[in-house]
């Protein structure tokens, strides 16, 4: 019960939780979001390219990824990446890539499917007159995408992209299944070592909750500001 609540175990493990755990979580979140956005935008462009085959492949990839539980995808890549590494480098045995790289690849590939849907909606929301005006000025397709369409799509979709990144931030906790010490993994390690599950899990919940709440509050503010500018 709360009477025996041990705040000290939290205080003692703060450096480990944040310097090691939260750094891992935030780095993984940021890099996955960035990679997922780039890869996702490429997928969205493939789907809208007008090349039937390219569009079909991209569409299948998105549907496929979105049908699978993230946990299963994490396991898939965890076991698959060493073999892919072996194949790419021509090594004689599956190469070990480490927990961080493996999770990063997983989240980029997985989140790209979700980011691509957002970017696709963003690109489709741009009026047809924009690319038309760009090509009338002599810009190539690639240039009109790069300088006219994508910047607008990105700006319009920024709140949704950020909201998806908050979801991603929460989802990174699932690397727990690989016993990787992200923030939750670190909390769990301390919890089990010291037999302080209640304290550590409650604390982890409060931290995740606070960060997500502040972030979504920021997104709402941003959304309101964008709405006024328009």
């Amino acid at each position: 019960m709360l009477g025996s609540f041990d705040f000290d175990v939290i205080r003692r493990s703060l450096p480990y939780l944040f310097v090691d755990g939260m750094t891992f979580t935030l780095t993984l979140t940021a890099l996955s979001a960035l990679g997922g956005l780039v890869f996702g935008t490429l997928i969205a462009l493939m789907r809208l390219s007008g090349f039937k085959l390219l569009g079909r492949i991209a569409g299948l990839y998105v549907d496929f990824m979105r049908s699978l539980p993230l946990v299963l995808v994490i396991f898939w890549f965890y076991f698959l990446v060493p073999y892919i590494g072996q194949w790419l480098t021509g090594a004689s045995r599956p190469i070990s890539v480490g927990a961080f790289a493996s999770s990063l690849i997983t989240f980029i590939m997985f989140e790209a499917a979700y980011f691509s849907e957002i970017m696709r909606a963003g690109i489709q929301s741009i009026s047809r007159g924009q690319p038309a005006a760009a090509s009338a000025l002599g810009l190539t397709y690639a240039q009109s995408m790069r300088y006219v369409v994508l910047p607008q799509a990105f700006r319009n979709m920024l709140p949704v992209l950020l909201t998806q990144t908050i979801v991603l931030f929460q989802d990174t906790s699932l690397v727990y299944v690989l016993s990787i010490p992200d923030f939750l993994g670190a909390a769990s390690k301390v919890a089990q070592r010291d037999g302080r599950l209640v304290e550590m899990y409650l604390f982890a919940a409060v931290v995740y909750f606070t960060i997500s709440c502040l972030a979504s509050f920021g997104v709402r503010r941003l959304q309101a500001r964008i709405a006024i500018v328009r």
């Binding site: 019960m1 929460q170 989802d171 906790s173 939750l184 899990y201 982890a204 909750f209 997500s212 709440c213």
Partner: peptide, 23 residues
Amino acid sequence: VEFFRNMPLLVQLFLWFFVLPEL
């Protein structure tokens, strides 16, 4: 809505499974 949306599902399951019985 904010309560359930701002915590990872995994953490929520831990709360129900490990923490609730102790409280």
